[in-house]
Amino acid sequence: MIGSIVTSIISFASTNIDDIFVLTILYSQVNEKMKKSYIVIGQYLGIGILVMLSLLGAFGLRILSEEYVGILGVIPIILGIKVWFDSKKEMQEPHAKNHGFIETDIDNNETCGKREQENHFSKIEKIKNLLRKIIKPEILSVMLVTIANGADNIGIYIPLFRSYTFGQLIMTVIIFVVMIALWCFISEKIANFPQVKEMLQKYKHIIVPIVFIGLGIFIIFESKLLF
């Protein structure tokens, strides 16, 4: 029993050591929208899905084929691009406010056209609001990044879980739950370390997109999806 406990701890730590770096980047994004609780929940959901897929694989049901794991690399790439555009928009907003905008009669002439666009976009907003009620976009983003970053772990977890008894599997799940909390705690402390925090806050508009896009490219190439 002690041997399986140690094996489970080592398996989680070795397969998720890079996740500490990703979590540290995510904790640097904490603000009014991205709360710490969202990161924790997203992390639990992401790893929970990976463990569930691994358990299904251990019992002979393979849902995610290894050669298609690389497709998940698109997720952090999209999120990295989104963060870059959001950062660029935030930097431009104060500049726009300082210059201000003068209303003219042209605005009145375009009112009719804008109303049609607003009606179209209102439908899209309704769908977005419905999705937001089901799950917060920030939680979903963390969950997707976690799944993409750890999808290759399934290949390690499946043979491990296959060799375990039911009792050992329950124990492993409990260990993983505790380890996720520990990972989040360590990452938050690293993100709040004075020198690290100062650097991330100063250059996060550059670091975060590079990390996410780089992670996505690494996942795609490591999976040999393109070869």
Rank of each mutant, 00 (worst) to 15 (best):
R115K: 10
R115F: 12
R115A: 11
R115G: 13
R115E: 10
R115T: 10
E116M: 08
E116C: 02
Q117V: 07
Q117M: 11
E118W: 11
N119C: 10
N119R: 14
N119V: 12
N119Y: 15
H120A: 14
H120Y: 14
H120K: 15
H120V: 13
H120L: 15
H120E: 15
F121N: 13
F121M: 15
F121V: 08
S122P: 04
S122Y: 09
S122L: 11
K123T: 12
K123H: 08
K123R: 12
I124E: 11
E125Q: 12
E125W: 10
E125C: 04
K126I: 13
K126A: 13
K126V: 11
K126T: 14
K128Y: 11
N129F: 13
N129G: 14
L130R: 15
L130T: 15
L131I: 06
R132K: 15
R132P: 01
R132T: 05
K133Q: 14
K133V: 08
K133H: 13
K133F: 15
I134R: 07
I134E: 09
I135D: 03
I135R: 05
I135S: 03
K136M: 12
P137F: 06
P137Y: 04
P137G: 03
E138H: 09
I139C: 06
L140C: 04
L140E: 01
S141T: 04
S141M: 02
V142I: 13
V142P: 03
M143I: 00
L144P: 00
L144V: 03
L144E: 03
V145E: 06
V145R: 03
T146E: 06
T146L: 02
T146I: 05
T146S: 07
I147W: 01
I147D: 01
I147G: 00
A148K: 03
N149H: 10
N149R: 05
N149P: 02
G150F: 04
A151T: 06
D152N: 10
N153T: 07
N153P: 00
I154W: 02
I154G: 00
I154Y: 01
I154S: 00
G155L: 13
G155E: 10
I156C: 07
I156Y: 08
I156L: 08
Y157N: 04
Y157W: 08
Y157A: 05
I158K: 02
P159I: 08
P159S: 03
P159F: 07
P159C: 02
L160Y: 12
L160H: 08
R162Q: 15
S163I: 07
S163Y: 07
S163H: 07
T165H: 09
T165V: 06
F166C: 01
G167R: 02
Q168H: 14
Q168T: 15
L169A: 06
L169S: 04
L169H: 02
L169Y: 02
L169D: 02
